[in-house]
Amino acid sequence: MNNKLNIAIMAGGNSSEEGISLKGAAQIAKWLDPSKYNAFPVMLKGTKMTLKHPKHGDIPVSWDSFSANVGEEVLTFDCALIVIHGTPGENGLLQGYFEMMNIAYTTGGVLNTALTFCKDTTKRMLQGINIHLAKDIRVRKGESVNPKDVVKNIGLPLFVKPNESGSSYGITKVKLAEEIVSALEKSFTEDPVALIEEFIPGMELTCGVVKTQSKTLVLPVTEIVPKNEFFDYGAKYENEVEEITPARIPDDLTDYIQTVSSEIYDRLDCKGIVRIDYIFGNKKLYFLEVNTVPGMSEASIVPQQVAVMGLTMNDVFGMVIEDAIARKEAR
C-alpha cells in the first residue's frame, strides 16, 4: 500500500519571474523526501495547468477538480507547494482557487499574499511595529509628476519601483531629477502603480521565518553585499553578490531583526516559508519588503540560512507540507 502524499509543485506563472520559478521547482523536487512524497511539477501558464509527468509527458490538469488523467487512473494531489513568484502565485489569485477547491497549499492565504504583494499596503500595515519605513510617493500610470517636487520631498538618489512586482524587475536607482520620468516608464512596464522611495544608505540584511501550528523557526540573519549598486536581478540570481550567513552584525541587532521579523510574520498573517528584507542605515533598521514565495534555488538565501541553523530543506518542506494539510483539515 502506497501511503506517500502526492505533492503538486506549482511553477511557472504569468510574470517576468517565470524562469526563476522553474529553477526553484526543479530544486524543490530534489529536496522533498521520496519516502514520504511523490513530487509532481505542475506548470501554470496563462489559463493552462500542465502536469510534467516523468513517464507520460505533458498532461493537462483540470481546473474543475485539480486532477490529471494519467493513463487509466486519475491523479489527485494532497497539497499544492507554491513556487510561483508574482502573479498568480504570490498575489492571492492561486490561493483563492485552492481555497475554493479545498486543497491544501503552502503559502499564506488570499489576504496575506494579496496584501504583501502590494508594497504600499504592506508598509501601511506595519505602522506601529518597531521598524522604520522609507519615505515614498505613490504614482499611478497617467498621473503627472513634477521631478523637482519629488526631489524636494524624497531627495536624491532615490528608487523607483513597481508597487506589485518582484525579483527587482522594473526597479531603477535614480541619481538625477531628469531620470525620474524614464524610471517611472520602466516601472510601469511591470505594474500600473509605482513607488518613488527614498534611498537609505546602509547594510542590506534579510531574515527567513517559518512557522507551523506547533513550531517556529526564526532563521539566522544574512548580510547581502551586492557587487552592483543594489540587490538587483543580477545580484539575486546571477551570483553578482556576496551573501554572508550569519551576518557580521552585533548580537543585539541580530536579536532585534529576528524578533521584529517574527512580529511582522504574525502581523501580516503569513504562513509557510517567508523572507523579510531590511536596510540598516543611520543606526536605524528600515523595512524593505516581505517575500511570501522566496527564491528556492540551491544557492538562494533561505536554504543558506537553514543550513547554518543545522537543518535541511527536506526538514523544512516536510514541516510546511504537513502544516498546510493540517490547516486545510481544520477549515
Rank of each mutant, 00 (worst) to 15 (best):
D136C: 14
D315F: 06
E298Y: 08
E242F: 04
L115T: 13
I129N: 15
T189A: 07
G71P: 05
N2S: 12
L268V: 14
E223M: 11
N2E: 12
P41E: 07
I154Y: 08
R327S: 07
T121H: 06
G24N: 01
N102S: 15
N69M: 11
I276N: 12
D58E: 14
I276M: 10
L5Y: 08
G281I: 00
I7S: 03
Q27Y: 05
E263V: 09
T254L: 06
E223N: 04
T245A: 01
M203W: 00
V193N: 13
Q305N: 05
L158D: 06
K328A: 09
G24K: 04
T122P: 01
P162V: 10
K148W: 05
G295L: 05
A80T: 10
Y37E: 01
D252R: 00
T107A: 13
A324R: 07
A11Y: 00
E204S: 00
N239M: 10
V160L: 06
K52T: 05
N112W: 01
E179R: 02
Q127W: 11
Q127D: 12
E90I: 04
G281S: 09
S187R: 00
E243I: 03
V145E: 03
G89A: 13
G13M: 01
P34E: 10
E229F: 04
P220C: 00
L268D: 08
N2F: 03
G318I: 13
M43V: 10
F287L: 09
K148F: 09
G272H: 04
N130P: 08
D251C: 02
F66Y: 06
S297A: 10
T87L: 12
D232I: 06
F188L: 08
I301A: 03
Y237F: 15
T106D: 06
V320K: 11
V150T: 07
T47I: 12
M10K: 04
V70C: 10
V260W: 10
T259D: 15
G272F: 04
L205T: 11
K23W: 03
T121N: 06
M43P: 05
G19K: 06
L184P: 02
S187C: 04
S62Q: 08
H56E: 14
E185N: 12
T292N: 13
A11I: 02
A299M: 07
F188H: 01
V209L: 10
W31K: 05
A330V: 15
